[in-house]
Design a protein around this nucleic acid. Sequence first.
DNA 1: TTAGGGTTAG
Length: 773
Amino acid sequence: MNQFSTVIDRYFSRQRCPRLNFNTFHNHHHRFGSIQRSYLQPTSYASILQEVKELIKPLQQVHANIVTSGLSQNIFLSNRLTNSYASCGLLDDADQIFHRIPCKNVVSWTILISGYVKNSLFVEAIDVFRAMVLISGLQPNAITISSILPAFGNVGLIQIGKSVHSFWIRHGFGTNVFVETAMVGMYSKFGCISVARQLFDNMSERNTVSWNAIISGYSDHGFGEEVFRLFSLMRRDGFSTDCFTIMSLISAALSIEGSRVGVEIHSFAIKTGFNNDQLVRTALMNIYVNEKCIEDAYLIFNEMVVKDVVAWTLMLTGFSSGQYWNKAIEHFNEMMRLEELELDSVALTGILSSCCSLGALQEGRRVHTLTVKTGFSHDMFVGSAIIDMYANCANLEEARIFFQEMEEKDVACWNAMIAGNGMNGYGNDAIDLFLRMKGSGINPDESTLVCILCACSHTGMVDQGLHIFNHMVESWNIVPNSRHYACVVDLLGRAGRLSDAYSLVNSMPLNPEFEVYCALLSACKVHGNIELGIEISEKLFQLEPNDAGYYALLSNMYALAGNWEGVKMTRVSLRSKGLKKDPGFSSIEINGELYTFMAGQKDHPQYFEIDGLLNYMILKIKEVGYVPDTKFVLQELSDDMKRDILYHHSEKLAIAFGLGRTKPGTIIRITKNLRACNDCHSASKLISKVFERVLLVKDAKRFHVFQDGVCSCKDYWGVIQSSKILGLVCSGINLKVTRSGGEYKEVLGSLVGSLLYFIKVLSLQDQHCFSLS
DNA sequence: TTAGGGTTAG
């Protein structure tokens, strides 16, 4: 840095007083017949440019001086200028200078190509390369080839990549470690890892970069073990390790399931000094986020001097996957405020999916508006995240409007829309979309089939679901995987066809993964088959011994069977493994503000506000018959303590808070991360009656509407059945359903859809939901 | 008579 500033300083101090060297100045003036501010030779400009490289202002000034010196035709200087502008990311300027060069040479072309590649503008790089080959008549050399290959790799142009490869061989350029390394990188990106490996094995010369190329190839494709094997070979052969190597090791470690290596890799990075690298730090954050050590990730994030958009996005993912909901909201609000942070499609998708899991509709809408302003709403990833967000926030209408207005839709957008219809109860519409997909030129993929089967199961369309499942291969050429089986097991289970579900699992041609057993387990619950339930819980427990969720499941099954010894054992082994189950929380939106309550949270900023309300609420519902159902507190505690735990379930905290902030006759909308427990369920019914509120609770599985002391939607069912819905007027989160008789009834937007869905589900069997919270 | 190159994250 010091060298930079000295040279630049020297240059500009000369600029400020050109007359010091009057003779040179005079000579230039004489020669060019105009006032020359600079007396420098092209070679001096060249070295200044070298130093100036990524400093935009000085670069522009040097550029201006080169022009006024009449040196803009100098190909050497023009090439350097092109390179400097490209290094600053100013590709338009680089392109302009390039185009003004009268006799471009191979170097000029190569500089522009590599400039685009370095800025990830691969398509542009390929266009330039094409023009070079087809128009200029110049032949690319080894440097050109090594510059363009990554572009082919990133865009996935396998054919062109291969033909450049054969051009390289045909022309007998001989061995070149740069080109060969780039080839390894390109084939790895294509997913042709064995070709890449063969090329790598045949290299006559290798260096750290070539090793990194093959290692990152393996780590990109999830061959974690092979990465570590190659890494030890690399060290054995005496090659040094750098940041790139560390990055691959980190992603390899991440791909090896259940490996908790965060601390080891972190200390290795500190020992080797690589922890000062921005990318390594970010990758370390990623490990901690993945291991759910959010505090550790946050420590690294906090210490970062330069927090870039990747770090911010990763931290957001951390907060929301670690269920630090308030933190997540604070964090993404800050992200939206920071002007220097340029939000890109990944960041926006991340924010939207956090809104999704939070049920934060207002925030989600703001992000949607932002994506429209910034043009990212046309991005397919962002677009499908917007659809997902609206559908998950129970606002299917807005999802539909957005979907319809999209100019271009890829398979992920269709999938999101199909899933959205399914989860909101529009099974027929989901099927309709599914059938329309092909007509618009989009082929269903594996996920599409998951979405549609899921939609069928959620809306009780058993026959349609089975029909689709049975024709997957012949109609769409998709072989059912474990997730598809899980959907069908769920479909049969919800319909009460436990034995069909069970025999389907037993007849599976592949090993059932955990989601299949999960589906079978809930089928057992619906069917009341505790014995089989325990058997399956134990299987799940073996499959995912490190997931606290399955301990809860198993413990709940034991509790249902009255096996308290089993409950105790599960708890002990949960603690001995140092695992924590996901804490329960509920959030509620009041006047566009989202408030989140954790179960048992007495240090909540709003606790004083709700403490009195909570007691009053319990008192009032006790008057109309509420009896706390302590058998759902699966711990051996005194009855008083059990009751205290029940009263402080996050859902009750949120409801109490909502009661204090709303008037009778309003709708209170609550999102819960886990499933609502039976005690909260029966309390909610009474609350809706006593306090004259409509409670709409969306939990991990379904929507519940509590009104007038009942949790059913018969009233609404009646509204929908007996009236033609003449118009749906969007207003905030509410929709007005217009009855044919001219009478208005306000219901929640989600309701129309969710009604159909949960009438079917709830009428089958009152749900059994248990949670350890 | 200079200049241009390969492998990294959310």
